[in-house]
Every structure is written in structure tokens, then in C-alpha cells.
Design a protein around this nucleic acid. Sequence first.
DNA 1: TTAGGTTAAGTTTTT
DNA 2: CTTAACCTAA
Length: 830
Amino acid sequence: MTTGHDDIPFFDEEPQEAAPRRPAAAPSAPAGSGVGGIAARAMAARDAGRRPDYLAGLNPEQTEAVETLEGPLLVLAGAGTGKTRVLTTRIAHILSTGRAYPSQILSVTFTNKAAREMKERVALLVGGAVEGMPWLGTFHSIGVKLLRRHAELVGLTSDFSILDTDDVVRLIKQLIQAEGLDDKRWPAKQFAGMIDGWKNKGMTPADIPEGDARAFANGKGRELYAAYQARLKTLNACDFGDLLLHPITMFRKNPDVLKDYHQRFRYILVDEYQDTNTAQYMWLRLLAQRPKGELQNVCCVGDDDQSIYGWRGAEVDNILRFEKDFPGAKVIKLERNYRSTEHILGAAAHLIAHNEGRLGKTLFTDRTNPDDDKVQVHAAWDSEEEARAVGEEIEQLQRGDSSGLKHALNDMAILVRASFQMREFEDRFVTLGLNYRVIGGPRFYERLEIRDAMAYFRLVCQPADDLAFERIVNTPKRGLGDTAVRTLHDYARARDIPMLAAAHDLIETDEMKPKPRKALFDVVMSFRRWQERLENTPHTELAEQILEESGYTDMWKNDKSAEAPGRLDNLKELIRSMDSFESMRGFLEHVSLVMDAETNENLDAVSIMTLHSAKGLEFQTVFLPGWEEGLFPHQRSLDESGRAGLEEERRLAYVGLTRAKRHCHIWFVSNRRIHGLWQSTLPSRFLDELPATHVSVAETEQSYGGYGRGGYGQSRFDKAEPFANSYSTPGWKRAQANRTDATRDNWGSRSGHAVERIGYGESGPKARTIDGELVAKSTTETPSRFAIGERVFHIKFGNGNISGIEGNKLTIEFDRAGEKRVLDGFVERV
DNA sequence: TTAGGTTAAGTTTTT
DNA sequence: CTTAACCTAA
């Protein structure tokens, strides 16, 4: 795809006539009348004598979603219901029925990954005949494209820079200091977050609520925001929020420009509509406007049950309100799931039904199989054991399960609520020698050396980019320290010119000492040289020259540290990846917006990631550890957003469950180390919300099932089948080897008699269903075997007095550890 | 400048 | 407890 900058002028992408063929459906046809569908079918029939291939294999709802082309349409697509297929087929349908050219379809996604996938799949459907769609992309990349064309309307020039979060924070810090404020008391990072929040809501400095404005920087919040915007303008730069905000401002101020786009975009599609924030919503509303009587061909696809980004400004309300926002809208629900087993869907459906704010849809499948596993809930004593048991299970699946089915590690994923949970799994997998991959780590372009190199390139292309200048003026070390930079900075600000230009001036004067002056002279001359080559040297070659001549590569070559060779490799990789771009500018844009870390597809490895980053993915087997109160649902979410927070956490749980195709294992532990200290934890309330009919409780001896002991749990243990044949298994041997004295002691003293851990070798966890009840159920029905005031002993917290009882959950005032809530199974009378 | 010590904070993440 | 960011001393 071409980049916005050297793009073709406005409106000359398509032939002279307004549309390829007159749409068969009259624009005035009532919404949802099905006229479009009939027309399409008629057309297809005429052209090929039958329904086009791409429509084959769609279910009735999907077909309707594809063929309802005229008028607003909301497709509520549950997890695994073929959402992407509908979107891509819809585009193919629009194109192949001749309703619009590719350039007349605006198609927005949230992530580059989604955009890429859609492009590929549309290309597959339509064939090579249709060139890539110019307006298929993320909100942000389309925003950039719009801004490059009309930069002057918002006070920028079309070669503006895009700043990433790091640049933004550094800039804000400068501003805070410039205001004479204490940058410790008012952290730049926090303010950057606030600005981002305002921009997500579509607010300019004038729009922000007085309270917000006063809350920061001694009441100077608004001024600071305005100063920041002014500074961006002089830097000729945008932050990510501006990529949404500026187009909105631009459209509002220039109705004629907006009108051009109205004519252009005959069809608008939005993916993941539940994740749109207010700014994106405003953006969409502007573009979707149509004169009275004309239909808005807006199709939004989303799933309110999978809205998990409220905390970063997404408004679930956007999707809940769709029918009000777009009068005459049609709503189609996709509920037929092609991914998961009945049990997984049943569990997920029952869970999500506890949410109030939802449109209501229930996934189903008609592929039932009596052999399917139920969703399994496992208990473990602590997070270490949790990791160990999951590791065992993964190895076992890898070897092949009882039905002879062998799992590739690539088919398994561990989805955690918070990233600190990953560590224990990583540690465990390292000792096991199990391949794993962590998704969502630091990205390629966030690495130090990449950012440095990029700063050089940016400054060559955009001499006004002071942030880039400051970053590399003394990298590698040139003796241009704080004092020199300060002088430059002051000089530049006093005259309102970029720092590179200031440097140019200053080397003519004797304001600086000879040494830094010489160094600065070299820098200025180098950049002048590189800028001259920009037009006539191939950009990859130029990039190489820049890094060589600046001494940047030498800096790493001389570096003796262990990372240095890797960094040099990364730099090579960076240059290599420039090959596929037309120009250095085009490349810069992609890196700031698009580039992400590549995963090694060839490696067979278990994926470890957060629930958030798992959205949209699927795996044969999914492990969901850490289902404990406080962690999941996360305490902070509850504290900050109350019921709404809880519902979002529940949606997160729903997302987790629905990632699984065949097997889903949920874990919770009784003790978890948080901020270094051990905390006793209670099972997540979400466990209570799972239906017994689709869930089984896996009993592993080693878990001690601490859980439930006080109520009805004990008897289940008594009936547990012995794992007699397990002693000779590798798993058992490994378990023996791994058993530490500490854990043995804990266990021994806790239960009063030594209990051996057996059974997580070959025989694996035995799963049984407890009729109608789950182990995790925290009922008050069973009277507690304890009474308030009793003195008890807990293995981790020592002695204490019971101050409250709620079912099997006790509140205890420990002598040393203070007040804790623990399960009664873990304490004993003194 | 760099190393080493101190301090504070510690969900989730895309663009 | 661990990490990252920041500050001070050599």
C-alpha cells in the first residue's frame, strides 16, 4: 500500500464517473427490505447463472449480513461466529456486484493485524483483479492519510511527525519544567495519560471539564494541555490522539472537505465497534452523515460481550445505542459458533448472562459430541503449584491424550489476567525445557537502538523534529552534554526555530566552547549532507550511511556488553525491513503506526499472554489461571469502576473461555504472592457463575483441594480413586525431584499428617462433576464448623481469632499478619 | 559520564 | 519481592 504522503491527489483514484454501475437497489429503498439482497442475487445470477462462489457456505444470518448493503446495519457477532468472514465477504460482494470501487469503501479496524488480515482475505475472495483497498486500515492510519492530504487545515504541513508515547512524555516533562512546576509532584506520564483520555473523548483544551483542568499542575491543567498542543504544532507533530482529533476538527471547520468524503465513501464498515471511543464515534458520525432521505450505508460489526477496553476510553454504549444513533438500523445477530464445544459455549453463556448491560445473545453450536470435555476447574495450593500442574498437563497433552490425539504446543495457550502471572509459568517452562512464547512483550520499534536509529532518520526527513534531535545529538557521545543542549534549546525557543536550525546558527558564533562547537559543527554538516542525499540516494543505502557516518554502529561495535551484538542485528533487520518501502518517509510512517514484532511461526511453542491480547485468537486448549478474587476480577477494576468494572472483568472472563476450541482449564490457587508477600486468596466469584452442567471439578491430590474442605469437600476426597500406577511415571519422578523441603513441611504441618503428592503424572487430573454444585461455590447453606471468636491456626499467617464467617470463608484477625479472609479449609482450631 | 544506591510503585494496551 | 526510574558520588 502506498503511504499517504506521496499519495495521488484527491479524487483521482477512480474513473471519472461517480460509480462503476448504478447500484441496483434504489437508494430510497426502505432499510432492511431485502431489496439489496435480491438485487445482488439477481445480478450474480445474471453474471454467472448462479450464486457467486463467495456466498456459498455462509449461514442464513451471515448471508443476510453480507447482502444487507443499503442502510445502517449492526452485526452483533459473537465470538467465533465468522465475523471476519462476513466483513470480507461483504466487501467482496460490494465490489463484485459493481456497487463501488475499492477506493469508495471505507473500512476501519482497530489493529494493524486486523487490517492486514482483512486485506488478505478480501484479496483472496476477489482475486488479484482488485488492487488493495486504499481506505482499509486502522482509525489511526486512515487519520494519518486524511491529515497528510489536508494538513494545512489544522495548522500542520503534510510531512508532520508522529510522536510515540515516549516522545510525548519527554515533551510534557519539558513543558512542566518550563512552567516552573515540580515534575515529581506532577508526573509527566500521568499528564500524558490524562491528555490521552481527553483526546479519546474528543476534547480539545477548551472542552475539558473544569474539575479535570484543576486536578493537575496546581490548576494549570488546561493551560498545560494548550501549551502541549501549541508545542506539537511548532514541532509539526501529532500524537496518536491527534490522528483522531485533528480530522474531526478539520471536518467540522471545513464542511466542503467533509462533503467530498461523503461522496467518496459509498460504504462504511467498522470492525470491533464495541471498542470505539468517543472520538472515533464522532469521527464515524461525521463521515457517515448523509443528506435527508439518503441512506447511511454504515455497517458496524462488534460484540458487546467482548468489550474489554472501557478503561482506555472505549464506550460500550456506542454499540448499545446503535439503533438510536442510526435511525432505521437493522440488527443481525450471529450466534452460531463454529469454534468451541457445547460445554465451553454453555459455560461462557451462563457466565456472561450475569451481566446487565448487554444486548443479549447466546452462542450455540449444533456440533455436539458426548465425548467432549467439560470445562475443568482446578484448585492449587499456590501459584507455584499452579504453574507446575499446568506444565505437567501441557507435557501430557503434547505426548498425546487418551484418545490418541496429539497436541502441538502451538495449539495451547495460557491466558492470564495480569502480566506478573506470566513469570511463574515462564520459570517453570524453562526448567521443563518447554517451548513457550510470550505475546505482547516489548515491541521491535520500542527497543533503544531502533528508536535511536529512527531518530536519525526522522531528523533527516523532518528537520523540525526537536525530540529526535535531542535524542541523538549526543548519541553516540560527542561531548554535547546537558549544558550544550540547554544552550541550543534556549536559543531555539527564543527565536522559535527548530533546534537543528539553532545549531546551524550557533556554530557561526562563539557562544559555545571550541570543543562542543566543533562537535556540533560536525553534526550539522552531517545532517545537511544526508538531507541532500535524501532525493537521490536509495533510502536503504542512505540509512546505512547515516548509521555508519554518525558513528552509531561503531558505538555498538565498541560496546562490550552482552546485548550489543543483538542490537547490531536489530539495526540490520531495521535496514532490511526498509527495503519494502518506497521511501524513507513512507517507512517512518509505518514504523510509528504499524510495525510490530514478528513471531516465529515455525517454532512449536505454548503461547502465554494476557486475556486482553488474546481477543480474536483461538486455541485447541486454553488454560486460564488465577481465577481468584482481587486478581480476577481485579480489585482495582472493582474499586475504580464498581459494577461497570465488574462487568468488564466478566466480559474478560467470557473472552477467555471463548478462546478455547476443545479444552478449557480454569485454575485458582489459595495462596498467591503479590508484591512480594504471600496473600491468602479466595476463589473468583466467576467460578460461582459457571453452570455445573458444563463444568467439572478436577481433583488432583496435590491440590489439597483445600478448597471446599469445610463444607462438603471432605467426602469427595475420601472417594477419590488412588493413583496407584503413577509412581513409576516420569511425572511422578519429576515431582519427587522438585519437591522442596519447604513445601513438604508446609503440607505436613497444615494437615497434621504427611500427604504425598501423587497423581499428576500419567493418570492426570481426574475430573468429576459434583451434581448441581461447584467446588467453588461459596454458599452460606452449610453451617460453618467454626464460630466467631474461636482461636485458629493458619499455615502462612499463624495464629488468630475468627472475627467473621461467611459460608466457608472466614475473616480472621491474625496476631502477626492482621485481618485476612481465608477459606476454613486452611485453618485449624488451636 | 557511569556505576551504584535509593525510592516508589506495582492491571489490562493500541495506535 | 522486583523493577524501573531517578539521583548522587567518584
